[in-house]
Simulated scan of single mutants.
Amino acid sequence: MATVLDSVRAFFAQSAFAIDSENAGDVVARERLLDRAMGEGRFRKSSEKLRHGRVPAEGLALVARDRDGHMIGTVRLWNVEAGIDASGAPVPALLLGPLAVDPDHEGKGIGSALMRAALTEARNLGHGAVLLVGDAPYYERFGFFAEKACHLVMPGPFERHRFLALELKEGWLEGTAGVLVASGRRLGRPEFNKAA
């Protein structure tokens, strides 16, 4: 993770922000940023059903900070099972979201920088695929397409054309079908997390 973050920091050294790992002290700032950027409707999304009561995938919660250290962007990835493969085995994947940038800092490349850092780190950690629900014209530039997710469904209402996937390993989602299921570690006391 340090190598990825160092390279992103070097690339944006002249910019007004830096990409960093989320830390425990970021919780309040992250929630305020998400409320401001996405509103209360974010809690009704099908993606939230997969995130609720879980912690993000290890090493895959990133933030953008301005020069004063204030959080101005966030992205998190979550462990899920992306249906089953032809043999009936669950297929591990990641669900991306939410990706949000403080409205006062939009248009500065912060969202793109967060996406590139998150996808690079996910690839470096050995993950096979990333799924998300979002605007295809924005996410296609990162390699996300609806065709890769055509045999998968979200656990609740979703717009099919906005359900996108990126294979980090060629053919990872080939032959998979079914409903996404949360598989990440649960929030709460450590003794309850062992079985998750």
Rank of each mutant, 00 (worst) to 15 (best):
T3G: 10
T3E: 15
L5Y: 02
L5A: 02
L5Q: 05
D6K: 10
V8M: 12
V8L: 13
A10D: 12
F12G: 08
F12M: 00
A13Q: 09
A13I: 08
A16W: 02
A16L: 11
A18H: 02
D20N: 06
S21E: 15
S21A: 14
E22K: 04
N23F: 02
N23D: 14
D26L: 07
D26F: 01
V28T: 11
V28D: 13
V28A: 14
A29G: 01
R30Q: 07
R30M: 01
E31H: 12
L34N: 05
L34V: 12
D35R: 12
R36Y: 04
R36K: 12
M38G: 01
K45T: 15
S47F: 01
S47T: 15
S47A: 14
R51W: 08
H52I: 02
G53E: 12
R54F: 06
R54T: 11
V55I: 13
V55W: 00
L60A: 10
L60D: 11
L60Q: 06
L62C: 03
L62A: 01
V63I: 15
A64Y: 08
A64P: 04
A64W: 10
R65P: 02
D66P: 09
R67P: 02
R67H: 10
L77N: 09
L77H: 06
L77A: 13
N79R: 15
N79L: 12
V80D: 10
V80K: 11
E81S: 14
E81A: 14
D85G: 12
D85I: 08
A86D: 10
S87E: 13
S87I: 08
G88S: 09
G88P: 05
P90K: 13
V91C: 14
P92Y: 03
P92T: 09
P92F: 08
L94E: 07
L95R: 02
L95P: 01
L95A: 03
L96K: 02
A100T: 09
A100V: 10
A100P: 08
P103Y: 08
E106N: 01
G107V: 06
K108G: 00
I110Q: 08
A113C: 04
L114Q: 10
M115N: 07
M115W: 04
A118S: 15
A122W: 01
R123A: 13
R123Q: 13
N124I: 00
G126W: 05
H127F: 07
H127C: 01
A129T: 03
L132S: 03
L132E: 02
L132F: 02
G134I: 03
A136C: 01
A136Y: 00
Y138C: 09
Y139C: 09
Y139M: 10
F142P: 03
F144P: 07
F144C: 12
K148I: 15
C150L: 11
H151S: 15
V153G: 11
M154H: 06
G156N: 10
F158D: 06
E159K: 13
L164K: 11
L164G: 11
A165R: 09
E167F: 07
L168I: 09
E170S: 15
G171P: 04
L173Q: 09
G175K: 06
V179L: 07
V179D: 00
L180M: 01
A182F: 03
R185V: 15
L187V: 01
G188S: 00
R189H: 05
R189F: 00
P190N: 07
E191R: 04
A196F: 04
